[in-house]
Amino acid sequence: MKTLKILHMYSELLDLYGDNGNMEIIEYRCRMRGITCEIDGYTVGSDIPDFSSYDLVYIGGGADLELNTISADLLRCRDGLKKAYDEGVFLFLVCGGYQLMGKYYRDAGGKEITGLGLFNYYTSAAENRKKQCIGDIVVRTEITGKPVDVVGFESHGGQTMGVKAPFGKVLCGNGNVFQGGAEGYSEKNVIATYLHGPCLAKAPEISDYIISYCVNRGAEAPAELAPLDDTFEHECRKVMLNKLLNKK
């Protein structure tokens, strides 16, 4: 089977609420199936890599300070990332990574960080501090073709608007905007979300969707992934869904 090539960008700066864990999970689920996983790092000032040579590019979340630190550097990568995305490389983006792929991020002081503009959405920090979106969140997504409930933790002041194709529907929590109904952005090779936690911890279906997409890129007959024992993950999600959805 082919080797999965992953580029994990800014892992030492953008790692809020366990975001780096997502790559540990992908790597684990590959390892259990005998799929080799190569994860390269990229940070501010690194040589610009050939983004198209990867199957998956991952960017996590960070506070305003970290976003400011990386934003100029990320712009250098714009053309390479755009090309890779057009060629079908999977983009997995959490929080700050999600925001910066849009048109811009306007912080609480009105200062604008230019986004890469790969997608048409844009983000402005909430004017009212009470509109900070912090807490547990449940999102129902159909990206795999079947409804999957993803449980995570959101913590963002930014309100993201102009999203045409959300990642999923909010069952509990806020999502793209304070008390909103939709969360994140997605395409067949893009998952962009506010969910930390890490969000793949209790959503093995989503991890496998990403892995399956990556290993089958360009293949004529997509190969099925070997099933894994996900009892802990399923029970873990069940506990949280009970707690979050039944309290209302």
């Binding site: 864990g21 684990y28 911890a201 209790k202 873990c236 506990v239």
Partner: peptide
Amino acid sequence: ARAYDIAVRIKT
């Protein structure tokens, strides 16, 4: 309360 979360973590 989060026994399964820590189990998933250690397993991974």
